[in-house]
Design a protein around this nucleic acid. Structure first.
Length: 601
RNA sequence: GGGGUCGUAGUUAAGUCGGUUAUAACGCCGGCCUGUCACGCCGGAGGCCGCGGGUUCGAGUCCCGUCGACCCCGCCA
């Protein structure tokens, strides 16, 4: 359908007097100039109402043919998302016509003059989020600039700006310096896969995008800056999840001449301040601290959700005394048996229990033993193998009573803890055990320094290889590395890890011992971290730091389950950008310059 | 690398046991309408049923493959 070409007006000397979210009764009678996008037009033949929208809000503007037929005629042609500017008078709305849903709902603008600044195609999805079910995310990602016009994402971006601004102000006030570190840097072994950037000037050589500014911030401590921070992009070429993007943002900080307490105290004040600034809530400090081993014992995970109970109970010794072979065998082979009690879970159906079995199966559990406690005794495929004495002991320890459901997993400790820990969270969500609006912050401390990597047949760092062992565990480095505890800490909120850090090794001799233990040979260490080892020789101060996942913090603040909702231009699970089409092919000449030739996949 | 869910007008969905011309709502276009605010009323247009192959007299529907989005495991110091 042919439409005569719109005649667009130029902005000329028109400048806004106000934004679309700020006018109220106090402005009645003023002449104002507003500009924005047409959210919605309601044409009554005579009167035309337009909801004019900008970043700050919505203001109703009225075109009345009796007042002036000329702008009214222009208003007949405007459509959704056209860009207009209007000049007119702020009028108090007639009695009964106030719109309580709008901050500007007490007033409206009677338009005397209008400029059409731009037209718009019909958007592929409504910008007004009140309309119907939400659009497929792939469509929204393709037209991200339109999705960002909508209230939810817009508010998330406003929140993001406020939070990072607060962090900057807070840290500057505390004497931290904001110092930028390179994005084109050196590939680090250990840790995540690097994104690589080929060098043109040195064909065959590669830069890597930083997984974090870790080494640079330590060098800044050696340089004597004392307190550093950065709100910084980090890159990891690993598979994505609902809370993981290949590029993400950290609030990264490092401090000299301090210890765990010094860092934790200042950082919990910052986080508390962020939540106050964003949600207006008071978060009491200090945050509770839990050791890693206690967290695993009680919750199965190193990021426990402490908003609800249902803690895990170790039943290895009791159940090893029963006739049930699954249990006796497990314990004989060095495994453990743990359980949790779902209060009132006796009502679950066979299918429910099968589903839960399937759930723990994801984490490698061979099975999920269940017991129901009925008035006439225990009900379970395994009930006949459990004697009276053991039943009493289990009931007591697991607070397992009539009407309850006891869920038991047996096997190697890491699997048992992981699967039951995840099951606990799953059940907590499924049965509404998690109190709404609660914010449970805590620190997890005393992580193990190493974990044994079966594939590689050697120890590897749980945190990173620059993490300091606890002083009292230093002798264990050579005798029992698996038991060495690290001066590392994570901040956990409602079951997600939102930050983590450590006191670093500042002595070259200890750093060398750790590298040796990680089977990073002297030559390799020199080649890969030589600059750090050198730096440690020139008066490196004791130092440590932390990094917070800004995106994850924002997810919680914004109340969303998807990291994509707090990032302006996110990527899909296959790491592509549906807006730009990245990643994409490049010209052969570009490859040639880099000395690269692509191999057929 | 593996497991799962989903792909039907612009959008959100329905589509029975495989059977005639693939429905609806919103949006869009046209008309009417001077107090609406997710305005209302009347009319209309709009489809490569993700893509490719197969089974069948006949496929949106069944089978195989493939592409894409999402969730999870592995991975993410």
């Amino acid at each position: 359908m042919e439409k005569s070409p719109e005649i667009l007006d130029s902005l000329g000397d028109w400048r806004r007097s106000h934004n679309c979210g700020e006018l109220d009764k106090n402005h009645v009678g003023e002449r104002v100039l507003l500009a924005g996008w047409v959210l919605r037009r309601r044409d009554h033949g005579g009167l035309i109402f337009v909801d004019l929208r900008d970043r700050w809000g919505i203001t109703q503007v009225v075109f009345n043919p009796d007042r002036d037929p000329q702008p009214h005629r222009k208003a007949e042609d405007i459509r959704s998302e056209y860009v207009i500017a209007v000049r007119g008078e702020v009028m108090e709305r007639p009695a009964g016509m106030v719109n309580p849903d709008l901050s500007t709902g007490e007033i409206e603008i009677f338009v005397d003059e209008m400029k059409l600044l731009n037209t718009s195609l019909t958007p592929p999805f409504p910008i007004d989020e009140r309309e119907g079910k939400d659009t497929a995310e792939s469509v929204r990602l393709k037209y991200r600039y339109l999705d960002l016009r909508r209230e939810t994402l817009r508010e998330n971006m406003v929140l993001r700006s406020r939070v990072s601004q607060f962090a900057r102000e807070f840290l500057c006030r505390e004497g931290f310096l904001e110092i930028e570190t390179p994005f084109l840097t050196k590939s680090t072994p250990e840790g995540a896969r690097d994104f690589l950037v080929p060098s043109r000037i040195q064909p065959g050589s590669m830069y890597a995008l930083p997984q974090s500014p870790q080494l640079f911030k330590q060098l800044l401590m050696v340089a004597g800056f004392d307190r550093y921070f950065q709100v910084v992009h980090c890159f990891r070429d690993e598979d994505l999840r609902a809370d993981r993007q290949p590029e993400f943002t950290q609030i990264d900080a490092e401090m000299s001449f301090t210890d765990e307490d010094g860092i934790l105290q200042i950082m919990e004040r910052m986080i508390s301040g962020i939540f106050h600034c964003a949600l207006g809530v008071e978060i009491p400090t200090p945050f509770p601290r839990l050791t890693y081993s206690e967290a695993i014992d009680r919750f199965g995970l190193d990021r426990p959700d402490t908003r609800f109970g249902m803690e895990l109970v170790d039943l290895s010794d009791v159940l090893a005394r029963t006739e049930a072979r699954v249990f006796t065998e497990t314990v004989r082979n060095g495994g453990i048996i743990k359980a949790l009690t779902l209060k009132g879970g006796g009502v679950l159906s066979r299918k429910d229990l099968d589903d839960l079995t399937g759930f723990v199966g994801i984490y490698g559990a061979k099975g999920l033993a269940w017991f129901k406690s009925n008035p006439n005794g225990w009900q379970s495929p395994l009930a006949k193998f459990i004697g009276e004495e053991e039943r009493g002991e289990v009931s007591r320890r697991a607070s397992f009573g009539e009407g309850d459901l006891l869920l038991v997993v047996a096997g190697v400790p890491s699997m048992v803890n992981e699967s039951l820990g995840q099951l606990r969270v799953h059940l907590g969500e499924k049965f509404g055990l998690i109190p709404e609006g609660r914010l449970d912050f805590l620190w997890i401390v005393e992580f193990p320094l190493f974990e044994f990597d079966k594939q590689e047949g050697r120890f590897s760092s749980l945190h990173h290889p620059f993490t300091s062992p606890m002083d009292e565990d230093l002798p264990l480095l050579e005798t029992d590395p698996g038991r060495v505890r690290a001066r590392a800490y994570d901040m956990v909120l409602n079951g997600s890890e939102i930050g983590g850090g450590s006191i670093r090794i500042h002595r070259e001799d200890i750093q060398a011992r750790v590298f040796e233990l990680l089977k990073i040979g002297e030559e390799e260490a020199r080649e890969k971290f030589g600059f750090l080892l050198d730096a440690l020789k020139y008066g490196a101060p004791p130092h440590g730091g932390i990094a917070f996942g800004l995106d994850r913090i924002l997810m919680i603040l914004a109340g969303t389950d998807s990291i994509r909702d707090v990032i302006a231009f996110p990527k899909t699970q296959k790491a592509s950008c549906l807006l730009t089409g990245a990643p994409g092919p490049v010209e052969g000449s570009q490859l040639l310059e880099l000395g690269l030739r692509l191999r057929r996949a």
